[in-house]
């Protein structure tokens, strides 16, 4: 039974990507939020900023840890989830839903990401 949604793509830095035509939605995985603990703050990227896969585009913080957000694909930010500014806990309670982080316009096809089954295996080795 996969713990991560089958329709998403995953990076080895624990971000997920949902491709919707030319656009994609980005978030962090259940595994990532679990490792961080109660998330207290999300630094969101600026709308209009462009990133290449592997670049830092923001960060998330808990009381005792901080982690960079790493872009899973090349793209330009078209929207961010401003609800996270007041309710960062959405990343804990709904990492694949209300806790989405940013919407990007893809400038290249993502090609280095894992599917859900591959990511499940990857997570098992990370523990």
């Amino acid at each position: 039974m996969p713990i991560n949604p089958a329709e998403l793509l995953y990076s080895d830095t624990h971000e997920w990507l949902r491709v919707e035509g030319q656009e994609a939605v980005v978030g962090i995985t259940r595994f990532a939020q679990d490792a961080l603990g109660d998330i207290t703050y999300v630094e969101l990227p600026d709308i209009g900023s462009a990133f290449q896969a592997g670049q830092t585009f923001g960060s998330v913080e808990s009381v005792k840890a901080a982690s960079d957000l790493v872009a899973p694909a090349d793209g330009t930010v078209t929207a961010v989830n401003t609800a996270l500014e007041d309710a960062p806990e959405l990343l804990n309670t709904s990492p694949y839903g209300k806790g989405w982080i940013a919407r990007i316009e893809l400038t290249a096809k993502p090609d280095t990401l894992m599917d859900a089954a591959g990511y499940d295996v990857f997570c098992a080795t990370e523990k």
Binding site: T40, Y41, E61, S62, V63, P88
Partner: peptide, 11 residues
Amino acid sequence: ARRFDETAAAR
């Protein structure tokens, strides 16, 4: 004091 809710304090 007893243990604090540091998460709430940081949010």
